[in-house]
Write a protein that binds this DNA or RNA. Structure first.
Lengths: 205, 205
DNA sequence: AGCCTCATGTAAACGGCGCTAACAATGTTA
DNA sequence: TAACATTGTTAGCGCCGTTTACATGAGGCT
């Protein structure tokens, strides 16, 4: 297929094009603004063409969610690597901040991946994989914590629930404008404040 | 207006009827399942009738969200009163459990009130009021904590952010099926586990 | 009572949506 | 080259949100 295509009947990479446009549209205007017809328009094909690549709109949205998870995973993975040589406590803190920062910078993608669509498992292996991968960073960092002899009285699973719930809650409340009590607190500040208490809890153990 | 109405031209309480039907529909089938036409059908009026009471669909959804917040506020208020004579720590813990329990029992309402629609402030005074009210239970309980001399090194606002983020995160992750690691953990159990760590943090302070 | 007015209902229409069916063009392979 | 599978197109269905023009009836005024 010719990459520099002109007026060919077959698009050549419609599936990818639709997913790209889908991510773009979600990022710019939110989930509700996405319609198959609009994506088809942007890709320069007819309204029915997307159905050759996705059984229905939800399937396409799962594809978009999968890409969102991949970005999320990359953002967390980057921080994990950067903190490979710091203390485990520092790594956990940084991971928490990165979690909230991603939500703040990509609110629509974040809302999508943690919506029923993004959580529909068993339909899209790519989504499932990306979801699983992005959920592994926190447990890994907490495992390091155990290895350093910190907070060993609590199981890694329970530590994960605790830390995950905390940063996820901050992220969600931040997106809803419910954190900061009026003042436009930055997402990083909010995350730092909260994760510091978490770290204090670990230290106290 | 006659309450036991027959074939009157004017409905008499269409606004309330629509909101009732809206809550019902959201509870049963989720936000996306709600359409103005369906509500009109259930109320036995024409498709355009709802526009005499709501400028658009979002306005009606805000009304539904306001009712959701009122239920939420009631659930938390009930627990607050029950815990008026217990220790402040116990009250905080019970409040956290009630928060997650409400989310688990009313997933669709919970998702609605913490969606952009439920958070749109300045449009619906009833919504704003119900939102503010339901957000006051936690700070009040944490204030009692301070009065008992617990965790006084942290401001009530910061305590609120911490506790709120934690329980909100648990609630959200629970709705997404992301807590419990496979096993069907009850919402109460999940909330208890997490809030116990929070209480431990307060005690350690 | 009769009338006016206004709130609140109806009917009909518009464009946009998800989705399907029938058909056409292209790529692939024997 | 001929058959076949893939991937496009066109046209149309029913549902949706919303608007416009019109109908009904309840309450206040004289």
């Amino acid at each position: 297929m010719n990459a520099a295509m002109g007026a060919t009947y077959h698009h050549g990479s419609l599936r990818e094009t639709l997913l790209d446009a889908g991510v773009e549209l979600v990022v710019e205007a939110g989930i509700d603004a996405l319609s198959l017809r609009e994506l088809a328009r942007r890709a320069g094909v007819s309204s029915a063409a997307p159905y050759r690549h996705f059984p229905d709109k939800d399937a396409l949205l799962r594809g978009v969610a999968a890409r969102g998870y991949q970005r999320f995973d990359q953002a967390l993975g980057k921080v994990s690597k950067q903190c490979a040589e710091t203390s485990a406590l520092e790594a956990v803190q940084q991971l928490g901040v990165a979690y909230v920062r991603f939500a703040a910078r990509n609110p629509n993608l974040f809302r999508l991946i943690f919506s029923p669509i993004g959580q529909a498992s068993g339909h899209d292996s790519e989504l499932d994989k990306a979801c699983r991968q992005s959920a592994e960073h926190l447990p890994r960092a907490l495992m390091r914590l155990h290895e350093e002899g910190i907070a060993t009285s609590i199981s890694v699973q329970e530590l994960t629930e605790l830390a995950w719930a905390l940063v996820h809650g901050v992220a969600m409340l931040y997106l809803d404008g419910l954190v900061g009590d009026g003042k436009p607190l930055s997402a990083e500040k909010a995350a730092e404040r909260v994760t510091q208490h978490l770290v204090a809890l670990f230290r106290a153990d």
